[in-house]
Write a protein that binds this DNA or RNA. Structure first.
Lengths: 223, 223
DNA sequence: GGATGTGAAGTGGTCTGACCACTTCCACGG
DNA sequence: CCGTGGAAGTGGTCAGACCACTTCACATCC
């Protein structure tokens, strides 16, 4: 039986046990965990308690469960902690100013890092996105999605996954509180030009210039 | 019955429902949630499913449950994401690098804003903290707490509470993955000097200088 | 009146057994 | 040889039971 001596609840003890099992059996991401019924029996606890522990791990994205198929270890990078944190931090957030400003800070941080770390693959992707934007504009479609993707690839080229993961929910949320400036006449064309300018500056590794251009671009993007 | 049309699992739907209930009833931190049995009945689901949802929220520290006493909303600042983050992804090398870097970015962002927004109250607080640090050093105590407080007051003087909210858990967590450099001989004295230099630069509103000093300080703080 | 004790009701904690839905896999029949 | 159907295994959910603990009103005592 699990150490119920400590006032820890059973499901918390099970969390530890599962962690131990994962270590002892050297389970790697993608491997399958013992079934709920087996865990229940091995640990001498009810299946419901096992499930409570597993649900917690699932919520965190540390495991995945497939109905009828089993429970599997997931790679750490898939964990949803940041997203959840973001969700709850931003949830009751009211001050638009702080949010917009935070976005700007992150975008600028990203662009600075990108100057030093962006690879050819990133530049190719940027190019593709810009071309897709231009194509959509020719067709009279507002390239909202491409605009987002361009900023995202910059966040990615910072090659700091934490920065990218903090950036994502903030941008997501700030989209909801402010109108899309791309709907303004002539703005999409201008935005693409600015994007291209930013990309070129990053390519040259010119931190000051790319920073300046990004700041200007964000400024212009306000409705 | 909950929308089982979406392939979402019941406990995930319940998470949403609980969120809705918290909003509709305008539940504030400290308030009590409906009991498990009541939720079970109101939502027409099994109590075990309700529990799975509640356990997930509890793991995140968003609610607390008191055996026999009920379930209560907790302030988000009590969330345990940091601990879990540390517990499960502590060994991921790449994540560590990103985390340290992210901290640096946020501290620099904070110091830049502080140059423009710090008030006399903030400076008085910094002064108090620095004096407390010096006092502890005189007593032969390592001023770990004061070090943290100094950085926090800078984050606060950015006057962007979102920045502060993101900053806090990042710093909290990075403390756990790197040794405290303050234990190094002579380091506390040096750190206080650097803090003072940063403060002075902020007072002058000298963005470049305070940024530079903060960067240097963080660099020196590595063990 | 106020402090104290007590018991019923309410609540979370856990286990069991049942049934359903889905996946996996192998033996059987083509 | 291939597919195919079905049994076995697994997660998803529910209902009911019992225990441990808290709360609170009410009775009791000083």
């Amino acid at each position: 039986m699990l150490e119920t001596t400590r006032k820890r609840k059973v499901y918390q003890a099970i969390l530890m046990e599962i962690n131990r099992i994962m270590k002892e059996d050297n389970l790697r991401p993608g491997d399958r965990l013992p079934s709920e019924r087996e865990l229940s029996e091995r640990l001498q606890v009810g299946r419901s308690s096992v499930r409570e522990a597993l649900r917690a791990l699932e919520l965190l994205g540390l495991i995945t469960t497939r109905h009828g198929g089993g429970t599997y270890v997931q790679h750490y990078r898939h964990n949803k902690l940041i997203d959840i944190l973001g969700y709850y931090i931003l949830r009751d957030y009211k001050t638009k100013r702080d949010l917009i400003e935070m976005r700007k800070l992150l975008e600028l941080d990203a662009v600075r890092l990108a100057c030093k770390r962006a690879t050819d693959k990133h530049f190719e992707e940027m190019e593709r996105i810009l071309e897709a934007s231009e194509e959509k504009i020719r067709q009279g479609i507002v390239p909202t999605e491409e605009d987002y993707k361009f900023h995202r690839i910059i966040a990615r080229s910072s090659r700091n996954s934490l920065l990218h993961r903090i950036w994502a929910p903030i941008v997501e949320y700030s989209k909801t509180i402010r109108e899309d400036s791309l709907s303004r006449e002539g703005r999409p064309e201008q935005a693409v030009k600015e994007h291209r300018g930013i990309m070129e500056a990053i390519k040259r590794g010119d931190v000051a210039e790319s920073e300046k251009r990004m700041a200007q671009h964000l400024e212009n993007s306000k409705l």
